[in-house]
Amino acid sequence: MSSCAQPAEDVQKEKELLELFEKWRGVKGALIPILQGAQAIYGYLPKDVILRISRELKLPPSRVYGVATFYAQFHLKPRGRNIVRVCLGTACHVRGGAKIFEKMQKELGIGNGDTTEDLRYTLETVACLGCCGLSPVIMVNDDTYGRLTPDKLKGILDNYQ
């Protein structure tokens, strides 16, 4: 990462955040759209952005944070470039989903909801991916992999930079 790219990027994000605030100023029920907009800008909701939103909307930080953690769509931690979702729905569960999940945690060295330090992967569990016929199933970004066994995981992960 070049040393001057970062600040320029920050300036751009800051500009977008201010525009977002501008757009919703005085509008009722703006909290959710602002959280969505801020996440679109930053990729997740950093603590200082939550505090900025709370000041902008004159809401206590605890309330903004409470809402942000209530909805699964919001992320409080940085997200990886690749999102790995392991299905633990009933069908996957009975057909070894838990073993897949266990192995995946080992492969990545992180737990549910966490992101690898190099920001390459974020690991999540889901309740059902809607393709129970293929169970056990995982998804990486938009690609689905079914009928998995633990030993296949490493090969799949290697495809994603």
Binding site: K47, I50, P60, P61, S62, R63, V64, Y65, G66, T69, F70
Partner: peptide
């Protein structure tokens, strides 16, 4: 004061300060 909030939901629900 709003020092406490309910976070997450379902089994994971936790009553705690923000962050």
């Amino acid at each position: 004061v709003d020092a406490l909030t309910d976070q997450k939901r379902g089994f994971d629900t936790l009553i705690a300060p923000a962050f």
